[in-house]
């Protein structure tokens, strides 16, 4: 604005400049409106709701921070927070490592490479609910195929989905199985963007396969790897569907496998406690924020964008 004020020659341009801005706003409007209506408004509404006591169909009552006081004194909240963390610990390192390993294998020239790529990606195209139903049968301790197979060796298989210490591990296995294909495709794309000349040069210098992997592959795909780890962590923190479908409230493993999202859902839609549920959502928001900040700090130190 200032520069335009001192230079009258630009007046005509200023006008065009303005209309360009109007066009720009018009173009991004659908996204902005969508964001406001679907994300920002509900977010603010949740903050307000968390200060109210809202049960059933009656009007909500303002209670200040009472929901938060009640929430932080609830043992199950801390248990569920741990469950969510534990789930991230179980799924992210193992899941991403497997995906990386498979991606490197599928990037080499092996027979039937495309078929393998297809097979690994298949779980991604199946609806999560269907995945959960199939695994429920596999893990069924009474008649499931897994325990039948273990039974052949005369060992009684564990209660995969009802042993309090095992249920969350079983669910982590399902989560890794269904996500590995997506991560693999991402990493594969990263691998294929690495120029072959790096490897040729390294080979001439006498680097072996392991050295090549750690000194060329890992640094060059670190942006992809970072993205994959970030997405996987977010998704694991938000884990809901598989736990919800496989561990019901009468399951003895419920307390030790209910993630924060399951706890939220239960309060909001089973106990119809929407105010309290909003407070849980705020708590998960804080946790996800901490994770995100932590990861972006790590990104600056570890990721190589050159």
């Amino acid at each position: 604005m200032k520069s335009q004020a001192v230079n009258p020659d630009l007046r005509g341009k200023k006008f065009r400049f303005k209309s360009e801005w109007a066009w720009a706003w018009l173009m991004v409007a659908p996204v902005i409106i969508g964001l406001i209506v679907l994300n920002i408004y509900p977010f603010i509404d949740s903050i307000i709701m968390s200060l109210y006591k809202s049960q059933g169909l009656g009007p909500a009552k303002f209670v200040g921070l009472q929901n938060y006081v009640k929430m932080f004194s609830d043992k199950q909240l801390w248990q569920s927070t741990w469950n969510s963390f534990y789930f991230v610990i179980l799924t992210v390192p193992v899941g991403v490592f497997i995906a990386l390993l498979l991606a490197v294998l599928l990037n080499s020239k092996i027979k039937g490479r495309d078929a393998y790529r297809c097979i690994y990606f298949l779980p991604m195209v199946v609806a999560p609910a269907a995945v959960a139903m199939v695994w429920r049968w596999i893990f069924n301790a009474e008649v499931g195929i897994l325990n039948q197979m273990i039974g052949v060796f005369g060992i009684k298989g564990p209660n995969w989905l009802s042993d309090p210490n095992l249920a969350i591990v079983s669910i982590a296995i399902i989560a890794i199985w269904s996500a590995v294909g997506y991560d693999l495709v991402m990493i594969l794309a990263g691998l294929q963007s690495i120029s072959a000349s790096y490897y040729e040069a390294a080979e001439i210098d006498g680097a072996n396969a392991v050295q090549r992997f750690f000194h060329i592959t890992v640094p060059l795909i670190s942006p992809t790897l970072f993205f994959v780890i970030l997405m996987r962590t977010m998704n694991s923190l938000k884990q809901f569907d598989t736990v919800y479908l496989l561990v019901k409230q009468t399951n003895p493993a419920f307390k030790k496998s209910a993630t924060l999202m399951v706890l939220f859902y239960r309060e909001a839609f089973e106990k119809f406690n929407k105010g309290y549920a909003s407070a849980i959502v705020m708590w998960s928001f804080v946790i996800i924020m901490i994770f995100t900040v932590f990861q972006f700090v790590a990104e600056k130190k570890l990721v190589n964008y050159d």
Binding site: N140, A141, E142, V143, G144, N159, L161, S162, D163, V247, K248, T250, N251, P252, A253
Partner: peptide, 18 residues
């Protein structure tokens, strides 16, 4: 047991003759 009921409900176990 409770574990057993989570894998097969009471109704299902009765209908299966268990």
């Amino acid at each position: 047991t409770l574990e057993s009921f989570t894998d097969m409900s009471n109704d299902e176990q009765f209908q299966a003759g268990r």
